[in-house]
């Protein structure tokens, strides 16, 4: 009689996960070993029971929302779809032209999209009041010069794991990059002017 097999091998045999040669040996052994055959039946019954119960869960869950993948479209289908779309657009344009009376074409420069009106109407502001409204001077933001290494001055002793770099303009006109951590605390600062001088050196 051939060697007996452990329940792991028998379970793998049940799922067809053993290599072909090994599966043939296990199959021969099960035909001649009552003990292993009984163990195999027990495993098989239990696997069927557990599988049927676990499959209940799939019926309970709504259809899967799959991750959007890059679609591999056959070039022929892609070309056919593009030709169909182009044909439809052309047909619509021709149909519109045939019903439209001839007009003198006026070329106009594209206008910017109108700004959406505020939801709540504000009370009318007089001209004097508008002049009196304080204007906050906003210095223009200078683009950052790309440097290999950027040096910051830490504002505390703690190491910075992650942070968001925000460019701020101080009232004095000095601009700086500030690292703000996840809690919103400023953790390090880099004056823009200082970097400019440093780069010029």
């Amino acid at each position: 009689m051939t060697q007996c097999w452990g329940e792991g091998d028998l379970r793998a045999f049940l799922d067809g996960e053993l290599p072909v040669e090994q599966a043939a040996v296990v199959e021969r052994h099960l035909a001649e070993c009552a003990g292993c055959a009984a163990a195999y039946r027990t495993l098989s019954d239990r696997a069927a029971l557990v599988s049927s119960l676990m499959q209940e869960l799939s019926a309970d869950v709504p259809s899967a929302a799959r991750l959007p993948r890059r679609m591999a479209i056959h070039p022929m289908w892609w070309g056919a779809a593009a030709a169909l779309a182009a044909g439809l657009i052309l047909a619509v344009l021709l149909a519109r032209e045939s019903f439209r009376p001839p007009v003198k074409a006026e070329v106009q420069a594209p206008r910017p999209a109108p700004i959406a009106a505020p939801l709540r109407e504000e009370p009318p502001v007089t001209e004097v009041a508008a002049q009196q409204r304080r204007r906050i001077p906003r210095p223009p933001v200078r683009p950052a010069r790309a440097t290999a290494v950027q040096y910051y001055v830490g504002l505390d002793e703690e190491p910075i794991e992650t942070g968001l770099v925000m460019r701020v303009a101080l009232p004095s006109g000095i601009q700086a990059d500030v690292i703000v951590d996840g809690d919103g605390r400023p953790r390090a600062i880099r004056p823009i002017q200082a970097v400019g001088k440093e780069d010029e050196r």
Binding site: V149, Q150, Y151, Y152, V153, E157, G163, L164, V165, A188
Partner: peptide, 8 residues
């Protein structure tokens, strides 16, 4: 403290 940092 001098460190090199980048956005998150």
């Amino acid at each position: 403290v001098i460190r090199s940092v980048q956005p998150t």
